[in-house]
Amino acid sequence: MSRTRCIALIAHDQKKEDMADFARHHQAKLMGWRIVATGTTGGRIKDAVPELDVTRLKSGPLGGDQQIGALISTGEVDMLVFFVDPLTPMPHDVDVKALMRLATVYDIPMALNLATADILMQTLTA
């Protein structure tokens, strides 16, 4: 039996609206995926597209990034889309870097901006 593919969606504060727009734009393709997201980002996605299967974890600074990292390390996350804001300092920057390192170590596709995320979505079937 095959499992539903899982995508992790995370966005820094200044990028949360971009993530909601991304989910709206790619709704048809995301419908076939289980989505895990950090707390506030997951809420914004769910508000934008209520039909999506979104599991909200803790806020990033409260451990949500680490929760997603654990899911990556156990093979439960197949793709990571993380809209980072490079112009705003993050108090939990170490957690963010650890998450990107895990995505690299476990060789899952990772997009850190909208242009790359759109390209990844083009490779998926609806």
Rank of each mutant, 00 (worst) to 15 (best):
G69Q: 08
Q14D: 01
I108E: 11
F83Q: 11
E17L: 13
M110N: 12
L9F: 12
D53C: 03
G63K: 05
I119M: 14
V36T: 10
D95Y: 08
S59E: 15
D85Y: 01
M90S: 05
R101E: 15
T104V: 15
T41G: 01
Y106D: 00
A70P: 11
T74Y: 13
K29L: 11
R3E: 03
D13V: 15
A11D: 02
F82S: 00
L120Q: 04
L99N: 06
T41V: 02
R3K: 14
I35H: 01
S59C: 07
L9S: 08
L87K: 09
C6H: 15
F22Y: 10
R34Y: 15
L102A: 11
V77S: 14
L99Y: 00
S2A: 09
L87C: 06
S2E: 11
S59L: 14
R56I: 04
L114R: 14
K29R: 11
L71K: 10
A126K: 12
A23M: 04
D95T: 09
N113R: 02
A11F: 13
G75K: 06
I7W: 08
D78W: 11
L30I: 12
A98S: 13
L120D: 03
R44T: 10
K29F: 10
I72Y: 01
D118L: 05
Q27L: 05
V94K: 08
L80Y: 08
G39T: 09
G43V: 03
D95Q: 12
V84F: 03
A117G: 07
D95A: 12
G42F: 07
V105F: 00
L57M: 10
L99T: 13
A70L: 12
P91V: 05
R5M: 06
G69T: 10
M31D: 02
V105G: 00
L80P: 06
I7R: 01
V36I: 09
T116Q: 13
A111S: 07
L120G: 07
R56T: 13
L120C: 03
L80D: 04
L120R: 07
I45N: 01
E76I: 00
V54A: 00
T125C: 03
D47A: 13
G75L: 07
D47Q: 11
L62W: 02
A28V: 03
L80C: 06
G43E: 10
K46W: 07
T123R: 13
R5K: 13
D18A: 12
V84M: 00
A28E: 12
A23Y: 02
D118S: 01
P61T: 00
K15M: 15
G63V: 08
R56D: 06
L30Q: 12
L102G: 04
G32N: 06
D107A: 14
G75F: 02
H12S: 01
